Computed example of a mutant assay.
Amino acid sequence: MVLILSDDTRVPVLRWVRPPQQARSQQTLDRILDAAEALVSEKGFDDTPVAEIARRAGSSVGAFYARFPDKDALLGALNERFLAQAIATADAALDPARWQHASIDEITAAVVRFLVEIHREQRGLLRAFSTRMRVDPEFQARRDRLARHVAAGLSALLLAHRAEIQHADPQRAVEFALTMVFGSLEHTILFSEMRSGAFVWSDDDLSAELARAFLAYLV
Rank of each mutant, 00 (worst) to 15 (best):
I107V: 15
I32P: 01
L14E: 08
S41I: 09
D105T: 08
F68S: 06
G76C: 07
R31N: 05
A51P: 03
D136R: 11
G44Y: 04
D34S: 11
I118K: 02
A128E: 11
V40P: 05
R120D: 04
G62D: 09
P49E: 07
R15H: 10
D30M: 01
R67T: 03
G58K: 02
D105L: 03
P19Q: 02
R55L: 12
V116F: 01
R127Q: 14
L83A: 14
L74K: 06
A128R: 10
D144P: 03
S60R: 05
R15N: 13
A88Q: 11
G58C: 03
V150H: 05
A102W: 05
D144Y: 07
I53V: 15
G62P: 02
A109Q: 11
E52Q: 13
S60F: 04
E117C: 08
S130P: 01
L157F: 12
Y65N: 09
R15F: 04
R55Q: 14
D144Q: 12
A102Q: 06
V150Y: 07
D144W: 00
R142M: 15
W99I: 04
K43R: 15
D46C: 00
L83D: 10
L39W: 08
T89H: 05
A57E: 08
R15A: 09
D30T: 10
V111L: 12
R113S: 13
Q122I: 02
T48V: 04
R145T: 14
A102E: 00
A93H: 05
D144T: 14
L158C: 07
A152M: 10
A66P: 00
V116T: 01
A141T: 11
V116A: 02
E138C: 00
R81S: 13
A77Q: 12
Q22P: 02
V150K: 02
R18M: 05
R142W: 14
W16A: 11
P20C: 06
Q26K: 06
L75E: 09
A36Y: 09
L157Y: 12
A156T: 14
V50E: 06
Q100A: 12
G62R: 05
V112E: 00
G62N: 10
A23R: 05
D105W: 04
F129L: 13
D95N: 15
Q140G: 09
S103W: 06
L39S: 07
D91L: 03
S155Q: 15
A38Y: 10
